[in-house]
Design a protein around this nucleic acid. Structure first.
Length: 222
DNA sequence: AAACGGTCCAACCGCAAAAGC
DNA sequence: CGCTTTTGCGGTTGGACCGTT
């Protein structure tokens, strides 16, 4: 059991845990598996209970309303657990999965359509921002190596006077996370379906905030 | 029918905060 | 206090499943 491989819970293990908790309640996760006759860690038991076995857990499809709550709270910076508090029956893990598997993609594709009319304005705003504030330009170390996954048209790399030898980060770069964020600039595709012309400023908090503020009102109007 | 690739969910891990001693 | 243990959170990933080639 203690291998690094994933080890799905069996029906028997589930029954042992459910029976134990219904008899004795939850008193100490780390001690419980021993008393319940389970070769699992307390953490594993807790996770299994919270995400699956607890009878309050709601299974099945998400409603539009639930999705909207997730999107809205996520925008406001809420953590998974606090979103879960607003959605009775949904666990933080489940909400996180929902976000990554569906909502972030849906939001991204919505955004492509929504932002298209504002493209010229965004580019000019970006240029103005970058000319006025050097801090928006990332450290060279953040953008060392080109990323084949995100080829960019050459003109993108020249925005705001940036040198054309500034290249996208590798996929291993932690800042790549920025690309997965549906509020990020990656979703403003140009006509070639390549990623954003604003690429060189990826990951800078100030720009990120600015973009969230700029985009979200348009999304709300849908 | 088999191979392949993408998607999604369950379960893992590391880390930090909270609680207990 | 300070150390240890427990709990909770968020990021990540293994693998089942499904559609496509």
């Amino acid at each position: 059991m203690a291998s690094s491989k994933k080890c799905p819970w069996t029906r028997e293990e589930d029954m042992r845990l459910v029976n134990y908790i219904s008899k004795h309640g939850i008193w100490n996760w780390s001690q419980m598996p021993k008393h319940a006759g389970l070769s699992r860690t307390g953490k594993s038991c807790r996770l299994r209970w919270m995400n699956y076995l607890d009878p309050r857990v709601k299974r099945g499809n998400y409603s539009e309303e639930e999705d909207e709550i997730i999107i809205s709270m996520r925008h406001d910076g809420a953590g998974w657990s606090s979103i879960a508090e607003s959605l009775p029956g949904r666990s933080d893990n489940e909400i996180k999965n929902r976000w990554h598997s569906r909502l972030s993609k849906r939001l991204a594709s919505d955004m492509v359509q929504i932002m298209k009319p504002y493209r010229e304005q965004i580019v000019s705003d970006l240029k103005a921002m970058m000319n006025n504030d050097d801090s928006l330009i990332p450290e060279a170390s953040q953008v060392e190596v080109a990323c084949e996954d995100y080829p960019l048209p050459s003109h993108i790399l020249n925005i705001g006077g940036l040198s054309s030898n500034i290249a996208p980060p590798t996929c291993a770069d932690p800042h790549i996370r920025f690309w997965r964020d549906p509020y990020s600039l990656e979703n403003i595709y140009d006509t070639d379906e390549y990623a954003t012309y604003a690429y060189p400023v990826f990951g800078t908090p100030k720009l990120h905030d600015w973009f969230r503020e700029s985009f979200y009102p348009y999304y709300q109007q849908l």
